[in-house]
Amino acid sequence: MNTFPSQTEQHAAVKRPAARASKIIVDSLSKTYTTKSGSFTALDQVSAHILENEFVTLVGPSGCGKSTMLRVLAGLEEASSGSASIAGRRITGPGADRGVVFQSYTLFPWLSVRDNIEFGLELKGTPKLQRLEVSDKYLELVGLTKFADAYPKQLSGGMKQRVAIARALANSPEMLLMDEPFAALDAQTRSDMQELLMNIQKHEHATILFITHDIDEAIFLSERLYVMKSRPGRIVREIEIPAAMRQNKELRDSEPFIQLKREIVDLLHA
């Protein structure tokens, strides 16, 4: 049992390998919406960071501000106060340095799978031959080589999300922001997609910020996770996932896994 120290202890002293620099730094970020019935605080003084090549997950119920935080990092929304930066540059708007995979299907329906993947490169004016090379590589990586010429409407939900991941990666972003990308998929497809994502991260050394409300998914995928709560949206705990527990679906019934899961559930319900 000593392989998995209690999470509360771990939280007290999260060890950061000196070699990894911070990719994302979020500093007391707040986001307030003004509505007719008054103002609503989606994010309250949130601070967090993501290291180079790290897989970090924001987990929490709907309304806890996890999506808002991701959208601020993506540059799709502006923070009310505080700041967010990527590799030292302040985030002021969307850009190709941060690839985003959305929960809804956002493939361009008039483009073939290949053209979808090449979209970002085409915007940059990358020559055709080079584009083909890149799209070939990512088609292969997500296992859709045979569907290169298909239109999105011919694909299943899981396949669409695989293309979306490939499209984001083909742009060679500095990191991926993933907003509940598997939430709409059935359990089996979801599990396959998790495996695929793990492989991709290993293969591409990607830095990933992932959002989910599925605790199993969060534990399976992440090196570190932030537990968030709503009203106002805030981070209540930072938890490092022991390397042995991560990416190991067989351990899902083990005592430490269940313990960790219970700890998170308790946090969310406290």
Binding site: A74, G75, L76, G93, P94, G95, A96, R98, G99, V100, F102, S104, T106, F108, P109, W110, F119, G120, L123, K124, R167, A168, N171
Partner: peptide, 28 residues
Amino acid sequence: SNDLLQASYTLGAGKLQVLRKVLLPALL
């Protein structure tokens, strides 16, 4: 769909590119 426009921004599209390469083909 707004999502489509936002996706194209995150892929590095500028305003004109979003109009020409996303909005127009999407509404055709």
